[in-house]
Amino acid sequence: MKTIYPTSRAISDVLSKTQKGKPVVMLNLLKFREQADYHEPRAGVSGRDAYQEYGRGAIRCIHAVGGELIWSGTPTGTLIGPEEEQWDEVLLVRYPSLDAFLAMIDSPEYKSIVHHRTAAIDDSRLVPMLES
């Protein structure tokens, strides 16, 4: 099943399992659309192009809440997992807390750029992780 947005149930579940005030690292698995879907014609804009536009604004939002991009890269395949789940990009983003992440996605600046992510993404996973 393709997913782009979290459900309210998933958010509640994560909030109940994540210790307050602890740093959290978000694992982002991304599959891009061939052509970005902006709901209006934008010839020649790929999903990857749209995500790069989102990324330029998102990094400012991440830094504004004390977060940092700690790793990004391109997978070469899947050794363990469903063969049909192939990802175009993987990112690890550290936030000072889950509350910092939630504040970021609720900020006016983030809300002004998230449409680029929506246009870009065909499928995704976002996995919050506590550091051991």
Rank of each mutant, 00 (worst) to 15 (best):
W71N: 04
I59Q: 12
T7R: 05
D122W: 05
P82W: 04
A50C: 02
G47E: 07
I4L: 15
N28A: 05
E131W: 07
V90Y: 12
G21D: 11
S112G: 03
V114T: 12
G66W: 00
A50Y: 01
D99I: 13
K17F: 07
D122S: 09
D123W: 07
A119M: 11
L126W: 08
E53G: 07
V127Y: 05
A50Q: 00
P96V: 13
L126M: 12
L27C: 10
L79V: 13
D13T: 11
T3R: 15
T78Y: 03
S16I: 02
Q52N: 14
R56H: 14
S16F: 02
A100V: 07
S132G: 10
L92R: 05
A100E: 05
E131T: 07
A50P: 01
G44T: 02
P75G: 01
P82M: 12
L91C: 07
G57A: 11
I70G: 00
E84I: 11
Y95K: 01
S132F: 12
I105D: 08
G67R: 01
D123I: 02
G57V: 01
T76N: 07
I121H: 10
L27S: 04
V65Y: 00
A10D: 11
V14H: 03
P82R: 14
L98Q: 12
E89W: 11
L15G: 03
L29Y: 06
D88W: 02
E89R: 14
A10N: 06
I113L: 12
D49W: 00
L27H: 07
P96T: 11
I121M: 13
S16H: 04
A36M: 00
S124Q: 08
P108M: 01
P75K: 03
E34G: 13
R33G: 06
L102D: 09
K111E: 00
V24K: 05
E131G: 09
W87E: 09
D106P: 06
I113G: 10
I113M: 12
W87T: 08
W71Q: 08
I62C: 03
Q35A: 13
